[in-house]
């Protein structure tokens, strides 16, 4: 597999300035991060507010460039000014608030904005608009005004806007934070679909633990460093450690953990509702069966 994103000893420092704009010091937001994302992977980044995850995300399409160390996106060094547009075309970003990302007055115009800026020929723009709206399940809204859409629909339009630029990788920075439960589900399903149909590499940053149970790998950040990495099962079986980093585990995992503490034989790191139900019901049927035998 090709490397989609690779960082080596990535360091980023914000400059602190006084009222006159003079630099009075620096604060290190990212402190030596080495991450390796293969093409087509689904990667989740967790971390508390201020842990450096958003600063990290902004390095993936060169909104920020490293103070030290290197970020390669699809093999390109983001620090090279001449690579800027290529980097931005390889990695698209979706942010938290859909209202801040939508600029068009009609859905299809909004989605066409990105490819238009890339200088894509008009016919192809329309083709891409149609395809991307189809990919996020919003084609029937193409002539609507974005203002009248629900939060989840707006966010899907924002994703379509990124998809229309045909990036190999999409970085989503808390895309569901402002959405209702169904809106959250819509966005996650859309992301899932893009992975399957378009083989897009996905990097998802979120505070909702249950959104990342399907990730290939989870990175946990704290104070600008990667402090944990592993599969969802490996990460979520460490409840106490996660709590130290101000994080949590999915509610299903908490319940499984609680039942385990109360003496039920339940393996660590249960992630899905069906998994837990299966596990409990096997204990139940076992009890039942032995009951009948006795």
């Amino acid at each position: 597999m090709m490397d989609m994103i690779q960082t080596e000893k990535l360091i980023f420092e914000y400059e602190k300035r006084d009222e006159d704009g003079n630099v009075i010091g620096t604060s290190r937001a990212i402190d030596g991060v080495d991450i390796d994302v293969k093409e087509g992977q689904f990667i989740a980044v967790l971390g508390h507010n201020g842990s450096g995850k958003s600063t990290f995300a902004k390095h993936l399409n060169a909104i920020l460039v490293p103070t030290d160390g290197t970020v390669w996106v699809d093999g390109r060094d983001t620090k090279e000014p001449e690579e800027l547009w290529n980097v931005r075309q390889s990695a698209g970003m979706v942010f938290q608030n859909p209202d801040n990302q939508i600029i068009g007055t009609v859905v299809e115009e909004d989605v066409g904005f990105g490819p238009e800026n890339l200088g894509v020929p008009t016919d192809e723009i329309w083709q891409r608009v149609e395809e991307s709206l189809k990919a996020v399940g919003m084609l029937s809204y193409r002539h609507h005004s974005p203002n009248k859409l629900s939060g989840g629909q707006k966010q899907r339009v924002a994703i379509a806007g990124v998809v229309a630029m045909e990036p190999k990788c999409i970085v989503l920075d808390e895309p569901t934070a402002m959405l209702d439960p169904v809106g959250r589900k819509e966005v996650l399903k859309t992301v899932q679909r893009l992975r399957e149909e378009k083989k897009v590499t996905v990097i998802l940053i979120t505070h909702y633990m249950e959104e990342v149970v399907d990730a290939d790998k989870i990175y946990v950040m704290d104070h600008g460093k990667v402090v944990m990495e592993g599969t969802p099962r490996e990460i979520f079986s460490q409840v106490e450690k996660l709590k130290q980093y101000r994080l949590d585990v999915p509610q299903v995992t908490i319940l499984a953990d609680e039942l385990k503490k109360r003496g039920l034989g339940i393996p660590a790191g249960i992630l899905r509702k069906e998994e837990l139900a299966e596990c409990i019901s096997s204990q139940y049927t076992h009890g039942n069966r032995t009951g009948m035998d006795g």
Binding site: N49, Q96, A177, M178, H207, R246, D248
Partner: peptide, 10 residues
């Protein structure tokens, strides 16, 4: 609690 980490939320 919108946008807060789990600990901040709790």
């Amino acid at each position: 609690t919108a946008g807060l980490d789990p600990k901040g939320r709790d």
